[in-house]
Amino acid sequence: MERTLAQAAALLGMTRPKLIALMREKDLLKGNLPAYPKRDKAHLRVKNTSWFHGTHGMQYSESTRVTQSGIRWLAEQLGIDLPAIPADRRDVA
């Protein structure tokens, strides 16, 4: 499962602008895209999207997505403590 930067920020307990600022400080983002897409491809990826606009023709955009394994990796890179995953009490006999 891939998440947007806004969704990843919510999981990390911050806002999207704060996450982007921290990622830029740590040289993980250049603009809003991964600074090193080949190095970090297991954790961050670029999603390409296109659509047709009636007046301006084909429009293209790119956005950063965070993979499932990228959430924990991102927390480690940024020095953020992830909240503990609550224990599942359904298995208690």
Rank of each mutant, 00 (worst) to 15 (best):
Val66Trp: 00
Ala84Val: 06
Thr55Pro: 00
Ser61Cys: 05
Asp40Gln: 00
Lys26Pro: 01
Gly54Cys: 01
Ser61Ile: 01
Ile71Ser: 12
Gly31Lys: 11
Glu76Gly: 02
Lys47Asp: 09
Glu76Lys: 05
Ala75Leu: 07
Val66Leu: 02
Ile71Trp: 03
Leu29Lys: 06
Val66Phe: 01
Asp81Cys: 03
Pro34Thr: 09
Arg90Ser: 14
Gly57Trp: 03
Ile71Val: 15
Gln59Lys: 12
Arg24Ile: 03
Gly57Glu: 10
Lys26Ala: 15
Lys38Ser: 12
Tyr36Arg: 14
Arg39Glu: 14
Ala87Arg: 09
His43Asn: 13
Asn48Val: 15
Arg89Phe: 10
Pro83Met: 07
Thr49His: 08
Gln77Trp: 05
Asn48Tyr: 13
Thr49Cys: 11
Ala84Asp: 11
Pro86Leu: 08
Arg45Val: 10
Val66Arg: 02
Lys26Tyr: 04
Thr49Gln: 14
Leu74Asp: 06
Asp27Ser: 11
Tyr36Lys: 15
Ala87Cys: 01
Val66His: 01
Trp73Thr: 05
Ala75Glu: 09
Asp27Arg: 09
Arg24Val: 04
Lys38Leu: 13
Ile85Lys: 15
His43Ala: 08
Pro34Lys: 10
Phe52Pro: 02
Val66Gly: 02
Met23Gln: 09
Ile85Cys: 08
Ser61Phe: 00
Ile85Arg: 15
Gly79His: 02
Ser63Asp: 12
Arg65Trp: 03
Ala35Ile: 03
Ala75His: 03
Gly70Val: 03
His43Pro: 01
Ala87Glu: 13
Lys38Glu: 15
Ser61Asn: 12
Pro37Gln: 12
Arg39Cys: 02
Arg24Glu: 08
Leu44Phe: 08
Gln77Gly: 08
Ser69Thr: 10
Glu25Leu: 04
Leu22Arg: 15
His43Phe: 15
Leu74Arg: 05
Arg90Ile: 05
Leu28Val: 04
Gly79Ile: 03
Phe52Ala: 10
Gln77Thr: 09
Trp73Glu: 03
Val66Thr: 04
Trp73His: 06
Thr55Met: 06
Lys47Trp: 01
Trp73Tyr: 05
Ser69Phe: 00
Arg90Ala: 11
Tyr60Arg: 13
Gly70Asp: 04
Ile85Tyr: 09
Arg39Gly: 06
Glu25Ser: 10
Asn32Ala: 11
Pro83Thr: 08
Leu29Thr: 06
Ser50Pro: 00
Arg45His: 11
Thr49Ala: 15
Glu76Tyr: 02
Met23Thr: 08
Asn48His: 15
Glu76Met: 09
Ala87Asn: 06
Ile71Glu: 03
Ala75Gln: 05
